[in-house]
Design a protein around this nucleic acid. Structure first.
Lengths: 207, 207
DNA sequence: TCTATCTTGAACTCTCAGTACAAACTCTGA
DNA sequence: TCAGAGTTTGTACTGAGAGTTCAAGATAGA
């Protein structure tokens, strides 16, 4: 895949909607090219096929998510507060790119079969959460858990599925507010839990 | 799609691994037929194409999940306990059918573009959780939340992403134990939360 | 200007999903 | 045992569309 010029990249986003709508398999290359407003020959000059077009779009968004999430995660403040910011930041990027998100969920398989994309996914979502959990234990704002990997995965799942669902369903017109609302709901759940009876949060002592 | 005989259905599971590995798009119909050990003509006698083969496999598994989850959800006991059982039951079925799960995640797009499958997905995963949350509020074993829909979605996301991840990575040889362990981890998180400072759930207790 | 890289239209090849169909086989019921 | 319906399969075919090729313009840097 050649270095993609910015102008071309922005045009490609015009095809994301089409891919999201119909799925990569049912979107003909000619249609993708039409939707992006570029000739098919140009498309093949830069990409080896439609798989690579999707991969490019996804990589672009994941980079954004990793960036925003990373910024939030490394800000000053307690790990717990940063976790909340990171969740919100990730959701905000997703809701800003609903078409790409929908394309992602639709062709997740292709995405995870491309090793560098799978790595980017990991990097964008999972890594920052996992490290914030560990930091939270260190600074005492989060309690330690039995299986941190599974917990990070659960949070990751909650964010992505919720975000994707909103992207698919279509959110209101103010995506930033939506992101904040959903993030608050997820964080409330993850931090405070649902139990009414005091179960077993070992919160008395501390680290 | 004709009524699929049980013998044929069981053979089709032999193709799930192939579909999971390569994705539906890259799995040729001839290969799918070979993997299942049936002639292509027979395949087309029962299905209109490979999409329908995948749809059949998924529908089969989702029905199983809905069944097990539903049974757990309607057992006697507090809503909170039943929630834990339902989570574990859903995970158990997923870990019992790793190839189908991987195929599902790989071609989720196709799946959600088939309306009856999307409905089955909803029915299998989301519905039982959402109603258990509501029941938990009624019977007092779970606290009410701001946005029950988002919370149900989050739990749904935690279960599926964790389950799918294990299905993709490959679990140990005892899938039932794995399911129990992961379910415990998810439920601990969802019920008790991660916060050390008492926000909402704050009494203390022990384990 | 000269040269390298980019851009594009158009015609091409080739793989494969899906179709067609007839022969054989199985089962049921009379 | 036969007739008919439904099922199973081999084989050959068709058509769509992904990806290729190429040569002629456009553009831009030296």
């Amino acid at each position: 895949m050649r270095q993609v010029p910015a102008k071309l990249a922005s045009k490609l986003y015009g095809a994301a909607e089409l891919i999201a709508e119909r799925g990569l398999a049912d979107a003909k290359v000619d249609e993708i090219a039409d939707a992006a407003g570029i000739p098919k020959a140009t498309l093949y000059y830069y990409f080896s096929g439609k798989d690579e077009v999707l991969a490019f779009l996804l990589a672009d968004m994941l980079e954004l998510i990793a960036g925003e999430g990373g910024t939030a995660a490394s800000a000053p403040g307690s790990a717990r507060d940063r976790l909340e910011s990171a969740v919100e930041a990730q959701l905000a990027v997703m809701l800003d790119h609903p078409a790409v998100c929908r394309a992602l969920v639709g062709d997740l398989g292709r995405a995870t079969r491309l090793p560098e994309l799978a790595a980017a996914l990991q990097e964008a979502f999972h890594r920052p959460i996992a490290s914030l959990l560990a930091e939270g234990v260190s600074d005492g704002t989060l309690r330690p858990v039995e299986d941190p990997g599974a917990v990070a995965l659960s949070i990751f799942g909650a964010i992505t599925v919720t975000g994707l669902s909103v992207a698919v369903e279509g959110s209101s017109n103010d995506s930033a507010t939506d992101a904040a609302r959903i993030a608050a709901s997820i964080c409330d759940l993850m931090l405070n839990g649902l139990a009414t009876t005091p179960a077993n949060t070992g919160l008395e002592g501390d680290r």
